[in-house]
Amino acid sequence: MGDARGRLLALIRETAVVRGRVTLSSGAEADYYVDLRRITLHHEAAPLVGRVMLDLVDGRGLSPDAVGGLTMGADPVAAAMLHAASAQGRPLDAFVVRKQGKAHGLQRQIEGPAVEGRAVVAVEDTMTTGGSVMTAVEALRAHGAQVLAVAVLVDRDTGARERIEAEGLDYLAVFTKDELGLDDGPAAGAGTGEPARPTL
């Protein structure tokens, strides 16, 4: 994983970390913003995301049948992992969790292959409090899935780990904010909450 991880870290630092004053949707201000959609939807970085996230899960000895999370931050992460597994000849499905079921059609909250009775890992690009991923975990459990762990690309160290582990789940992260060279300024930004007004 070393080469892929190192290159991905470089791409995140170069591409996703936006310096400058940013007003977040909460109203708080930050000196930087981490936009991981610039990574998970990037032609070079996305395949690396799949490889390092899959290696992260493998490193804990987990063998999920499927991966996914709350739309939309988790969607490209899960898709990247699906393709990385396929390249290795391994079966791994992906799924998308809506905040609530659709009011028409099949009225599904979880899109993709069925998760009932299957082992899954809930994924995200980054997390602040863990609220979004726990919404996904609750939906997965309600639909009969066995949630093995939560895995994230960048851990912001702002309480998500504690919340996830309090639910009895393993919390796996590829990178910490320290590895990204980010300081502990007040209310530092992250890609799961869009900035309301960037002042870059």
Rank of each mutant, 00 (worst) to 15 (best):
V77M: 09
A114K: 11
V133G: 02
S132C: 07
A145L: 08
A78M: 06
Q107H: 15
L70P: 04
G105K: 11
L153I: 08
G69A: 10
V120A: 11
R156Y: 05
G131P: 02
E167M: 12
D157Q: 15
A114S: 15
G101M: 14
V67I: 11
G105C: 12
E116M: 12
L148R: 08
R161K: 14
A142K: 12
R108Q: 15
A103P: 00
R161I: 09
H83C: 11
D155F: 09
A160E: 10
P91R: 15
Q146N: 13
G130W: 01
V121A: 09
M72E: 02
A79E: 09
D155A: 11
A94W: 06
Q146I: 05
M72S: 14
P76R: 12
V147G: 01
A149M: 06
K99T: 12
D125S: 10
V147H: 00
E111G: 13
D157A: 15
A136C: 09
R161V: 07
T158P: 00
G117P: 03
V120S: 09
R118L: 10
M134A: 09
L140G: 01
H143Y: 08
F95Q: 07
S86E: 15
G144C: 09
S86N: 07
R98S: 11
E124V: 06
G131I: 05
L70W: 07
A160P: 00
M81N: 02
L148I: 02
A122D: 10
Q107Y: 05
A114Q: 10
V147I: 05
A78E: 06
H83I: 13
G69W: 07
L106D: 14
P113G: 08
V152R: 04
G68M: 12
T129Q: 03
A103D: 15
H104N: 09
T135H: 12
A149R: 05
A119G: 02
Q100H: 14
M81I: 08
Q88I: 00
Q107D: 05
M127N: 01
L92R: 03
V115H: 10
A78S: 07
F95H: 05
A94G: 14
G168W: 06
A151S: 09
A136Y: 01
S132K: 02
G130T: 04
G73T: 03
K102R: 14
K102A: 15
A145P: 00
G112C: 11
K102F: 09
Q146W: 01
A80M: 06
G89A: 13
E162I: 01
G73Y: 02
A149E: 06
V67F: 06
G131C: 07
V97K: 02
V150D: 02
A94S: 14
A151L: 06
I164D: 08
L140D: 03
P91V: 13
I110N: 04
V123S: 12
A80Y: 04
G117V: 13
E165P: 00
A139Y: 05
A80F: 03
G168M: 11
S86Y: 14
R156W: 01
G105Q: 10
A87Q: 13
L153Y: 02
D125Q: 04
E124G: 06
G168F: 12
R108C: 05
G73V: 08
V147E: 00
R141P: 01
G105F: 11
H104Q: 13
A66N: 08
G117K: 10
D125G: 03
V123D: 02
D93P: 00
V67E: 05
M134I: 12
G73Q: 05
A142N: 09
Q107W: 02
G89T: 13
E162M: 03
E138P: 00
V147F: 04
